[in-house]
Amino acid sequence: MVEREVTVVNQLGLHARPAVLLVKTASQFSSDVKLSKDDIEVNAKSIMGVLILAAEKGSKVKVSAEGPDEEDAVEAIAKLFADGFGEK
């Protein structure tokens, strides 16, 4: 299992559009990908799960993946967060 802590950097936080991007990215991998924030852990391939994290700018999210392509999955998602999902 691979785990990494990432920070939400874009102004609007993890709102609907970035959530879709995240879910689509996570779904490209066959590993089980999970996100956790505070005490709640959700499936990164489910849009509702990602949305209810309601992660605001500056908050920390833990990305974890388990499976054959776990390294790549975490890398790709961490990159999305770091790029602010292409937003400011």
């Binding site: 709640i40 489910s46 849009i47 509702m48 209810i52 309601a54």
Partner: peptide
């Protein structure tokens, strides 16, 4: 959870 309520996502339709 509070935020979720009784929403659901149906693929192809949305929330």
């Amino acid at each position: 959870t509070n935020l979720l309520g009784h929403h659901m996502e149906i693929r192809g339709v949305g929330i």
